[in-house]
């Protein structure tokens, strides 16, 4: 995983509430057995017309949006299924941060494991950022993960929450499995003290 330290980018604005994972990536794209090309399917049902051509009315298809790395969404982003294909699609497309007033729990966990930063801001700050971008659609937002700050085009700086462990993993670009593995002796000790309630291998079919 690439470390995440600071990010400065123009913003793609998609002010829809409750954007669910079926919109982020429809289920018919979940038949892949790898992560390759997921970015092409991001927001597929909004982004493409029935014949597969780009829908010119959708924000991602506007020429000036190309290369923007921050997505500003409505409330409760990422609700619905547990598919990690959702952050894979966002990261595959080129997004590195999503701003919302809240994120669904599983989506947030999945995003953090893929170097995609979920930035939670207050409703008031969200409104101000929307206003800033209305005034200057090419305005840049700056994110500093170490300081946990986000600075709007209009100059307002907000602190955003993130648990210190996820922050450490993002800053260093390390995943969580290594940390978990370092606890193997304790996990084994736990197993020795706690008999398994079920054994799936006890019965074959």
């Amino acid at each position: 995983m690439e470390p995440f330290k600071t990010l400065r980018s123009k913003v793609v604005t998609l002010l829809i509430n409750d954007i669910d994972t079926d919109q982020i990536i429809p289920a018919r794209y979940l038949k892949a057995t790898d992560k390759i090309g997921m970015g092409d399917h991001l927001f597929a049902d909004w982004r493409y017309r029935p014949d597969g051509s780009p829908n010119p009315g959708f924000v991602l298809n506007r020429p000036e949006m190309q290369g923007r790395e921050i997505l500003l969404a409505g409330d409760n982003f990422g609700c619905g299924s547990s598919r990690e294909h959702a952050p894979w699609a966002l990261v595959g497309y080129g997004f590195r941060a999503v701003i919302s007033t809240s994120f669904a729990d599983i989506f947030r966990n999945n995003a953090l494991k893929n170097g995609l930063l979920p930035v939670v801001v207050s409703a008031d700050a969200h409104q101000e950022l929307v206003a800033d971008l209305k005034h200057d659609p090419a305005g840049e937002v700056a994110i500093n993960l170490a300081a946990q700050t986000i600075t709007f085009p209009g100059g307002r700086t907000e602190r955003f929450p993130i648990d210190s462990f996820s922050k450490h993993c993002l800053l260093e670009g390390v995943d969580q499995l290594g940390y978990l593995q370092s606890w193997l002796p304790r996990i084994k000790a736990y197993e020795a003290e706690h008999p398994a309630p079920v054994q799936t291998t006890a019965r074959s079919r």
Binding site: S82, E84, I106, N109, D175, L177
Partner: peptide
């Protein structure tokens, strides 16, 4: 509870 694929791997 439901988990993502990274957590499935964990």
């Amino acid at each position: 509870f439901g988990i993502g694929t990274s957590e499935v791997e964990h």
